[in-house]
Design a protein around this nucleic acid. Structure first.
Lengths: 262, 262
DNA sequence: CACGCTTACTCGTATAGACGAGTGGGCAAG
DNA sequence: CTTGCCCACTCGTCTATACGAGTAAGCGTG
């Protein structure tokens, strides 16, 4: 428990209205922003800060909990509190479902990750028929039961996305779409082979804090929101042929869209 | 401090590995999910839960702080802890900048809010020339100084969005774009009048927890992320003519895009 | 050298108590 | 009736203490 290097952090202002734990959080945040602590670097321990500021441990912990909520730091039991590193982000471009990307054998996720030099994985594969939720039923045009395809995507061992595709049974049942591995080009390629030429996609985007289940599935740190994306695929006859519900770790993604001005 | 209605919440499991404050949070979360507590409704007070579960106050507060981080509840000093109501969301469609929407006199924000029956406001207007940040400079094609237009949007008194537009000086200086009120149709209409016919927009979307400054500006509750949207407008000659940096309260927005399948 | 133990340090959980400050209802004085 | 005060209840902040549990390095034993 060596004393803190002087000058790294300042003093408290006892005359300030601002709560002590907020002042401590402010100082740490500023030090991080100024690069005094780098990504992945260990912050002073709770005991260090207790000594430095002359406050009780709970006060220091409150300060840390603010920074955790902001997604700035994360604590590791037995090791310390660290500046949270910014993971590499996946960029999703609006042409990612263009037909020309669908020709190859591998899935878009695998191809793209390989190109970026990271190690992609897909797991938690589940394919089953089930009752459509109210929302999915509405989006697919009042279907009762659907084929659901669930999978989780990982980059370099880290889960980044969890997605479920829902397809009407009259389209998907008994086709390669109902198989765990639908084959080259994925289910969109199969849909087109089955005569459902794709016309366009609608995407709805929300951001929110994750549920406990999502925290577990995506192994999310505190202070990391999720991006919730719901895509509906329409064929050239205007029929919705797939709804894909995706939950992404927000710190791993940048979504990119191109809009016409006309 | 009347005793809790029995049956509303269960008991703790002393044999469980799960920390007591997590068990309490779980019970409250489940009660909320099941609708036992409705939106805006007051949860049992800290003292109530201390009595009911036979734990110390800090343990109850820890439980509440979990739920706050999840954006499920919010505390009001002197009043209690309440289930956070879901505010009405603004839907942003991908055709919101289509030329046909630019004909009217009022801004898109005002028109749309009026139609939805809510009371729109725009404030914190600031228009000034300044040095371009590294990022803005890159996006606009290496310009050094820019015209910056900052404004905040409110719905029914609640701030929902904070946006800054950056334009190259050689385009904007001395034009209505440099005025606080650029006139009917907004700056996109003015850009087209100035000969920069708009061709398309690029939008980049991220989600993250807000900085303290953003919490203040948007009056965000704990556990509400922000959507960070950066839009670049291109004219028909392929030149970037505006960059708009927008930070939105994530609980107030759903973004919607339409993608071609070709 | 390899293994396992000890030990120091770290964060996690929980208790008990104290005072401050915002809210809102009730009551008493005007 | 109205005004203003008091009080009960609420969450906010802070202290002090205790024990548990994960980590990592050092040290001694086999």
């Amino acid at each position: 428990m060596s004393p803190l290097p002087s000058g790294l952090l300042g003093d408290l202002d006892p005359t300030s209205d601002r709560a002590v734990f907020r002042q401590i959080a402010d100082q740490l945040r500023e030090a991080i922003d100024r690069g005094r602590f780098r990504e992945g670097e260990k912050l002073p321990s709770e005991a260090d800060l207790v000594d430095h500021f002359g406050v009780s441990r709970m006060t220091v912990r409150n300060a840390f909990s603010i920074l955790q909520g902001e997604g700035l730091v994360h604590a590791e039991h037995g090791r310390g509190v660290f500046v949270r590193p910014r993971p590499p982000v996946r960029r999703l471009a609006s042409d990612r479902f263009a037909r020309r990307h669908r020709e190859q054998g591998k899935s878009a996720f695998i191809v793209e990750a390989d190109a970026a030099g990271s190690h992609p994985q897909v797991d938690s594969l589940e394919v089953k028929e089930e009752k459509a939720s109210q929302d999915v039923s509405t989006r697919l045009g009042s279907v009762r039961r659907v084929l659901a395809r669930r999978r989780r995507y990982l980059l370099d061992g880290r889960p980044v996305e969890f997605a479920t595709s829902y397809l009407p049974l009259d389209i998907a049942r008994g086709t390669p779409i109902a198989e765990p591995n639908p084959g080259p080009g994925g289910i969109y390629a199969r849909l087109e082979e089955l005569g459902h030429r794709l016309d366009h996609f609608d995407e709805e985007i929300r951001a929110r804090m994750p549920s406990p289940a999502e925290v577990k599935t995506l192994r999310l740190a505190a202070g990391v929101p999720v991006i919730h994306l719901i895509r509906t695929a329409f064929d050239t006859e205007g029929r919705p042929v797939e709804v894909c519900d995706t939950v992404m770790a927000a710190d791993a993604y940048v979504l990119s869209y191109q809009l016409p001005a006309t």
